[in-house]
């Protein structure tokens, strides 16, 4: 680990598309994959560049923004408060579906638990109480069932549970 002790350490990350990111250590340590890399290579040089062959620059930038904010929230004792919810809501509002997908794949690869929980919950909310047609249109998923499969699925769902409206 850093021989300078208290000095602010910078971690270098290199994305699949060749971009080099300089990230504050506490933020980079949110990425389980980076953390375990340094845990297992304690004598890695301070200027070691960690290659991230499965992540490109755009989602990584978004992830760093998210983790940075959350590291600060925790440092300020604001974790779990309205401030955080507000940030999360704003954060996701600006993201397109495509960006959201890139983010979740990257967060999964980097193994960032907090962010992954947040993103999967966001997606779950977009599935809850929605029709199949809505979900397909929303996520741009093609109906790729053959007519026979479609018929089998339809038959099976004649028995599907339905929600009950409270009246």
């Amino acid at each position: 680990m850093s021989k300078l002790g208290q000095a602010k350490r910078i971690i270098f990350l290199k994305t699949a598309d060749g971009q080099l990111f300089e990230v504050d250590e506490p933020v980079a340590m949110e990425f389980e994959i980076v953390k375990s890399f340094f845990d297992e290579n304690e004598d890695a040089a301070d200027d070691t560049v960690v290659p991230l062959p499965n992540v490109s620059a755009e989602p990584l930038a978004g992830i760093i923004e998210f983790c940075k904010a959350h590291v600060e929230f925790r440092a300020n004792g604001a974790a779990g408060k309205d401030e955080v919810k507000k940030f999360n809501a704003e954060y996701i509002k600006e993201k397109s579906n495509e960006q959201l997908k890139e983010l979740i794949l990257a967060a999964n690869y980097l193994n960032i638990k907090e962010m992954l929980d947040f993103l999967t919950e966001t997606i779950a909310n977009r599935l809850k109480n929605k029709s199949v047609e809505y979900v397909r249109a929303f996520f741009g998923i093609e109906n790729d069932f053959t007519p026979q499969e479609e018929e089998a699925v339809r038959k099976e769902y004649e028995w599907a549970f339905e929600g009950v409206d409270e009246d």
Partner: peptide, 28 residues
């Protein structure tokens, strides 16, 4: 989205109810 890894779908489905889960199985 159709190719979302199963491990992610698994996390997502944890907060779904039975109706939503059944619908998920009809998408693609």
């Amino acid at each position: 989205w159709a190719d979302l890894p199963q491990e992610l779908l698994e996390i997502i489905s944890r907060s779904l109810n039975i109706v939503d889960y059944q619908n998920l199985g009809r998408v693609c």
